[in-house]
Design a protein around this nucleic acid. Structure first.
Lengths: 141, 141
DNA sequence: ATGTATGCAAACGATTTGCAGGCGA
DNA sequence: TCGCCTGCAAATCGTTTGCATACAT
């Protein structure tokens, strides 16, 4: 099932702006901001509006065709720093956030990535998303 | 060494707004946005300015007393959704981003966290931050 | 005494919304 | 045809900056 079919089945229409957004993302080598998507999309579709890009991204994300990722810049939560790296568990229902320790398990993975990519890894962020125990008893909102 | 000493040694001054921000964060059960910190901080320090909160957070982060985390809302990069979970490697110098696969290593960790917290983990985000090979040869900016 | 830090308000930039018209199904 | 979708512009919201004053050192 291709993306057009998925969007269609979810009740969305296949339009030029949405095709453009998908085409831009398909060619992208890294995550792009809505502004970047808009700028690149205009090369194909001169009159593409920025608001439309935002709306298309919202739809495509809801349908699961596009993933919103966390960029280093412009993210705005703060916590007290704790020693070591940062690992959180976030409840997608109530928003409760728990920090946990002990990801020694990551070390092998990190070493492997360093060998494979040539990067020197200095820090990491691991965020697990799920449903906390109290929320598991409630019906979906 | 307590936080006041750390800040002081780094050349920062100990002021009422900074004490307030630290106090608010110390009591917080989850990451807070600057706006939330400001609202809570005003209970202690009536005239606290929002711009001051931003500036205090920037200083405290630079010194390592506070950590900026990535919240689900208000983060604005998009990629095509790929099957499985999301793992990225970001270069802190040039911003280059590489997606990689293979974090089976995480499964043991996730199972352990589920047992320990009662959460049901449904998704995860692993972001490694480092310096890519080309940037390792250049002098720090 | 000195220069950092503050509060306020204005500037800025990103995102969202209102609306009239267009177009996919 | 019907109503979802679009482009534009205005409104909104979060963050940063300019400036005169206050205060930590």
């Amino acid at each position: 099932m291709d993306w057009e079919e998925r969007l269609s089945r979810a009740g969305g229409r296949i339009t030029a702006p949405r095709r453009t957004v998908m085409a831009v993302l398909r060619r992208a080598a890294r995550p792009l901001t809505p502004q970047e998507i808009h700028a690149r999309g205009r090369r194909f579709h001169r009159s593409l509006g920025l608001a439309t890009v935002y709306r298309a991204l919202a739809v495509l994300e809801r349908v699961g065709l596009v993933r919103r990722v966390h960029l280093a810049a412009r993210c705005d939560g703060y916590m007290l720093a704790s020693p070591g790296h940062y690992h959180v568990l976030v409840c997608r229902r109530c928003g409760r956030t728990v920090e946990f320790v002990g990801a020694e398990d990551l070390e092998g993975l990190i070493a492997q990535v360093e060998r494979g990519t040539g990067f020197r890894v200095e820090d990491h962020l691991l965020q697990l998303v799920g449903v906390c125990a109290p929320c598991q008893g409630e019906r979906p909102s």
